[in-house]
């Protein structure tokens, strides 16, 4: 059923598409994170902004990705932006919620102690609130990475210039081997990204591990 010969002949192409998949994903995750951080901090500081941002983000997430990719073509033509704009929009939904939740998770007594000791508002954000939001931020990053890797696959609908590993799914819809390469490759990439980010989180937040250990010992 699987044509191993085809795979052997196309290793270079597969590697190239894997690289493209990663590139499209990383750009979306990075740009989306930068935008979300700003929006989330604004939402955490100004209550009315928060409901607007979260509301809009929720609406965006209900738009089917296929529809959004296709709808943008007549508006901005076919370019990197056509892929990245939807990808970034979808990451916003996940990121903003998680970063806001992360900032909300900072215990009130910690905030009060920080204020009482003379942190400035920005100092408190940078040194206390954002570091404490890191676990939920990375949880958001993991979700967004899995979601984005899937959406990059779908972007293969826009033609040969895009899609990453998804290219193989859309190129010849009747050739099972190629479809499997695209699908399995995408899944493997998503799982690898999730595992990698999980490790990164443990690295970045040794204090949270101490809390987990204690919680485990207490139960």
């Amino acid at each position: 059923m699987i044509d191993w010969g085809w795979i052997g002949d196309h290793l270079g192409a597969i590697a190239g598409r894997l690289g493209q998949h990663l590139e499209l994903t990383v750009i979306a995750l990075a740009v989306g994170f930068a935008l979300s951080l700003g929006l989330a901090i604004l939402s955490a500081r100004v209550r009315p902004v928060r409901s607007i941002v979260i509301g809009i983000a929720g609406i965006v997430f209900t738009i089917p990705s296929l529809a959004l990719f296709s709808a943008l073509v007549p508006i901005i033509g076919l370019s990197l932006l056509t892929v990245e704009v939807p990808l970034v929009l979808y990451t916003l939904v996940i990121y903003v919620r998680n970063i806001v939740a992360g900032l909300d998770s900072v215990p009130p007594d910690v905030i009060e102690a920080a204020d009482g000791m003379g942190y400035t508002a920005n100092g408190r954000l940078a040194r206390v609130e954002l570091p404490l939001a890191v676990p939920l931020m990375i949880a958001g990053l993991r979700l967004a990475s899995v979601s984005t890797i899937g959406l990059v696959t779908i972007s293969g609908i826009l033609g040969q210039s895009f899609g990453g590993l998804g290219f193989f799914i859309f190129e010849r819809p009747t050739f099972a081997t190629e479809i499997l390469v695209g699908a399995v490759g995408s899944i493997a990439l998503a799982i690898s990204a999730d595992v990698f980010l999980g490790r990164l989180q443990r690295r970045l937040t040794p204090w949270a591990r101490a809390m987990d250990t204690q919680a485990g010992a207490a139960t």
Binding site: P107, D109, V110, A113, G116, L132, W207, A208
Partner: peptide, 8 residues
């Protein structure tokens, strides 16, 4: 009362 130590 709740001390408010920085957990991180």
């Amino acid at each position: 009362q709740q001390v408010g130590l920085f957990p991180h």
